[in-house]
Simulated assay, not measured.
Amino acid sequence: MTNVIDDLDRETHALLAASPLAPERIDALIDDLIHQGFSCQRDFFPPVLINALLADLERLEACDALASAGIGRLKEHQLATSIRGDAIRWLNQESPAQRVYLKRLDELRSQINRALFIGLFEFEAHFARYPPGAFYKRHVDSFQGRANRVISTVTYLNRDWPVDGGGEMVLFESRQQGPDGFDPNAPIQEMARVLPEAGTLACFLSDTVPHEVLPTRLPRASIAGWFRRNASVNGVVDPAR
C-alpha cells in the first residue's frame, strides 16, 4: 500500500510541476470578469493535465461510475432529460489529476479574491460527459439571494474537436433576475459561443449570465465547476452538493 501511495504522490508532484498557471492569463481572466461578466481563455491548462483528466474521466466511465445529471439542489433535485442529457461524477481528489486540477482552481480562487474582494470560500466541480445528441437548455447556475454559487467555470477536455462537432456553450447577455427568477424563454442576446476545445477555460457570473450547451454531434467531455461563498444556516455550512 505504501508503494502505491508513494507512486500517486510522485505522479501528483510531476503534474503540479508540469502545469503551473500563467499569471498573465489569470490577470486577463479577472479583467474580463470585471468588464463583461465572463471570460474565455483558450489553452489555459496544458495538455499534460488535460490528458490526465480525460484519462481519469474515461476510466470512471468504463467503470460505470457516472450518474445521470439532474436539475435543482438537495430536496428539489430531479432528473429532467428534456432539459439536460449529461452524465456526471463529482471530483473528490481520488486521483493525481483531480488533486492537481482542484489545487490549481483553488489558486485561481485566491487570486480572484485578492483582486475582487468577493469572499469566495471554496470550489466544487464535476466531470460531465455528453453523449451524441445531448444538450443543456438555457439556464443560470444560481438564483440571486437563494444560493451561493458566485462564479461558474467550464474546463474542456476534448482533443481535436472539429468546428462542426456541435456542443458549443452559448453565453447570453448578463441580466438581473425578476421576482420570479430567470425566464428561460425570454428574448435575450448572445454574447459568446465557446467551442469545447481541450484546455479552454470559460468563467462567468453564476447568477446573471444565462447559458446553454448546444446539441453535440460527438461525445463531449468537460469539468463544470463553481466558486462558492460560505452560506451558513444556524451555524451549519451549506453543503457543496
Rank of each mutant, 00 (worst) to 15 (best):
P47R: 14
E197R: 14
W90M: 14
A125E: 02
A18D: 12
R84N: 13
S82E: 15
Y136V: 01
L21E: 07
A147R: 08
F45Q: 09
F204V: 00
V237I: 10
A65W: 09
Y156N: 11
S39L: 04
R114K: 14
L102M: 14
D31P: 00
F227K: 08
R241G: 05
E173M: 06
Y101E: 01
L29Q: 02
A115K: 10
I26M: 13
L57K: 04
L157G: 06
A198T: 06
L33P: 09
G70Y: 01
L120I: 10
L171I: 07
D27N: 10
P187R: 11
E94H: 11
I26Q: 13
L195V: 13
Q144C: 11
F227V: 12
R84S: 13
I34F: 05
Q144M: 13
H139Y: 04
W226I: 00
L57T: 05
D183P: 10
A125P: 05
V236R: 03
E168F: 09
A97T: 01
I188G: 04
L54G: 04
D43Q: 12
N113L: 07
T153P: 03
D106L: 01
A198H: 12
L214Y: 02
F38D: 06
A221G: 00
C40M: 09
K103R: 12
R42C: 09
F38H: 15
A69G: 14
A125T: 08
L91N: 09
E58A: 10
A115W: 01
E212A: 07
R229G: 15
E212S: 07
L91Y: 07
L54F: 02
I118Q: 02
S19H: 05
A147T: 04
A231Y: 12
E124V: 10
S206V: 07
Y156K: 10
